[in-house]
Design a protein around this nucleic acid. Structure first.
Lengths: 206, 206
DNA sequence: GCAATTAGATACTGGCACTATCCAATATGG
DNA sequence: CCATATTGGATAGTGCCAGTATCTAATTGC
């Protein structure tokens, strides 16, 4: 398959494919001559995955590259892949996320849930920032308010990990891990918003 | 309070505050002279809310303006505010989200859950796109797989709406609705990621 | 009076995700 | 076997967006 067919079958302009090649998101095709390269079905799958991560999930090109590299390098170890995808392992410039304002609250929450979470997990910082914002806005909302949400998150994670059970192919399982952790995020938020609309209608008349 | 004090107390550069004024995110202060305006505590709160929506949640300036306008216009009716924040009512160029590829699956899911969801809800499109992406990537994942996630989303929404009960002040309740629907989103995703890390560790040795 | 500050307008910056153009080297079909 | 189209690779440009910088004229507080 040459680039024009790859473009046609994926719906991605060839200029954009070249851009992804340049950026290292898509591995180069097998060169058959100075101005000719052969692309495989794997390239097509990878390309669709890239578009999903960037278009549906809204990742940046850099974040997408890191996720894809994680999938390739640690395809054998699903926990490693998850760790890298989740940012648990320091990838680039590692920044500890367990100090700074709000960190004690996050630690309290993590401890209350009995979770073992890396100090480098960016999720820590996200929660700390959210709590800090809510506090500065005067909402009476602290880490204790998050406990029932955390319990629901735990049930969601159990669902997620269950999906990974019955797959043998390593690459496929690693990709599936990416899909479930990263690609599902906007859909989960969308479900919550629909549920809010429903619940709000229930409580306020029609 | 003049702009320099507003800047100092919020930590936002005055050039950026001027930018928000220009963009209509922040209402103009009470002008006391041609080159003098007075800002109130409400401006400070609003400014912090803007920073939270843009910085923590990652909204664009345009999306932030729409959310803030919704809060101001419909502060009396929490369901209206939620509707506008969730995009249920057509705000700008209304696009029906209940057709196109993937829409039948979304309808099936919504019907299965017994939800009443506006045809204009952007959440419909998000879920349709996600399902479509997953399908084109070859994952055996359809709307039925989303059912348990939807049930968890429903429990989350119940939690959300419970938070809105005991607040009398209209503006405060409207702002709280925004905080809970919009600002909590990254925190919920972060909780899920931490829960995944924990669950993954549980299942794969250490 | 006079340095410091301000509102408001205009122009600029930097980052990002592409997109367009060009070139030399092929491939293809009549 | 040659004319035309396509390709890989490099380089430069586009459009958007969030924020910054600069300038001017008016005003303030010492």
């Amino acid at each position: 398959m040459r680039i024009s067919e790859l473009s046609r079958r994926s719906g991605v302009p060839s200029a954009t494919i070249k851009f992804y090649l340049r950026e290292g998101l898509l591995p180069a095709g097998r060169a058959t001559a100075a101005t000719q390269a052969e692309y495989s079905e794997a390239h097509l799958r990878r390309l669709r995955l890239i578009r999903a991560l960037i278009g549906v999930r809204g990742l940046t090109v850099n974040a997408t590259r890191e996720v894809l590299n994680a999938v390739c390098e640690y395809e054998a170890d699903i926990h490693q892949v998850l760790g890298l995808v989740l940012g648990a392992r320091p990838v680039g410039e590692a920044v500890r996320s367990d100090d700074g304002p709000g960190a004690p609250d996050v630690n309290a929450l993590v401890a209350h849930m009995g979770w073992q979470i890396s100090e480098y997990a960016p999720a820590r910082r996200v929660i700390a920032e959210t709590l800090e914002s809510l506090r500065s806005l005067g909402a009476d909302f602290d880490w204790r308010t998050l406990i029932p949400y955390a319990q629901l998150a735990r049930q969601t994670a159990v669902l997620d990990l269950d999906q990974l059970r019955d797959t043998d192919d390593l690459v496929e399982r690693a990709e599936r891990a990416v899909l479930l952790t990263v690609l599902l995020e906007p859909a989960l938020l969308a479900l919550r918003r629909m549920a809010q609309e429903h619940e709000s209608a229930l409580r306020h008349g029609t």
